[in-house]
């Protein structure tokens, strides 16, 4: 029988959302339109329209060592062109953001190629070749993985994911990269590291509370789905915990 990945345990809605995001055969819902130029502006790695700076000559122009792995693995577009490695980093509010750091790393590993994700408690960074990064960023920004108010694109000074929301529902950001306008549309006025942009980049309206609670991948005992209510998830985590603890003692079975 062919192997069929399960992506994750759990019977709750949150677990189901997590599996949906991780499963590459499930198409993520598109929520907004962000142009390629807007993405380049938010990332702040190069000027829009500028050529991609390179870290090495294109693979076609350089002598590759005779390596069996290189014959198996097709290089990504960015690797083929010799692009620099660049990053995008996200902070997700604990108040029902649609995604969260561990989840991001899992889903990126399932969905994208040639990436190096870094997971921390309050932020998640993904590094890859610049050309690929822009392609992946588009997917991360345009789909249901991002909420304009509760997800922050923050390259540095990420503080805010575990704090109360602001009066207008935005996640706290000491650099205030994104601003909620009078018309209800969130605009990035600074790039991800906090440098002011020449023009504001609109990324749409924040999603409503009801939608967020139905699509979140975060367990939350106050107002959301409590972790303890998902018995299957608890059982799975306890099994992993128990097995890895026992393995520390090298059991002979």
């Amino acid at each position: 029988m062919a192997y069929k990945p399960q992506y994750g345990p759990g019977t709750s809605k949150v677990a189901e959302n997590r599996r949906k995001q991780m499963n590459p055969s499930q198409k993520l819902e598109k929520m907004r339109d962000v142009t390629d130029e807007d993405i380049v502006l938010i990332l702040g790695h190069r000027a829009p329209g500028a050529a991609y700076p390179t870290a090495h000559p294109p693979l076609a122009e350089q002598q590759e060592p005779d390596c069996p792995i290189r014959k198996i693995v097709t290089p990504t577009d960015g690797a083929k062109a010799g692009d620099r490695v660049r990053y995008i980093q996200f902070a997700d509010s604990m108040f029902f953001a649609p995604c969260h750091p561990y989840q991001r790393t899992y889903l990126e590993s399932y969905r994208f190629r040639g990436i190096d994700p870094g997971t921390l408690s309050g932020r998640q960074i993904v590094e890859c070749r610049e050309r690929d990064l822009e392609k992946y960023s588009k997917e991360l920004l345009e789909t249901e993985l991002l909420d304009a108010a509760r997800t922050g694109i923050r390259g540095a000074t990420v503080h805010g994911h575990s704090l109360r929301l602001a009066e207008n529902g935005m996640m706290f950001d000491m650099l205030q990269r994104s601003v909620l306008g009078e018309d209800g549309i969130v605009r990035y006025v600074k790039n991800q590291i906090g440098e002011p942009l020449d023009r504001a980049v609109a990324i749409g309206k924040p999603l409503d509370e009801k939608w967020l609670k139905a699509h979140t991948t975060i367990f939350h005992s106050l107002g959301g789905v409590p972790y303890r209510d998902d018995a299957e998830y608890i059982e799975y985590v306890q099994r992993i915990h128990s097995l890895r603890t026992k393995y520390g003692f090298m059991p002979k079975e």
Binding site: A156, T157, L163, M174, Q176, V179, I193, E195
Partner: peptide, 20 residues
Amino acid sequence: PSIPETVPYGPARGQPNPHP
């Protein structure tokens, strides 16, 4: 939480931080 006058960390460190 503090709202600093200048960007405290990262590549833009030291640049002014206009914050409404």
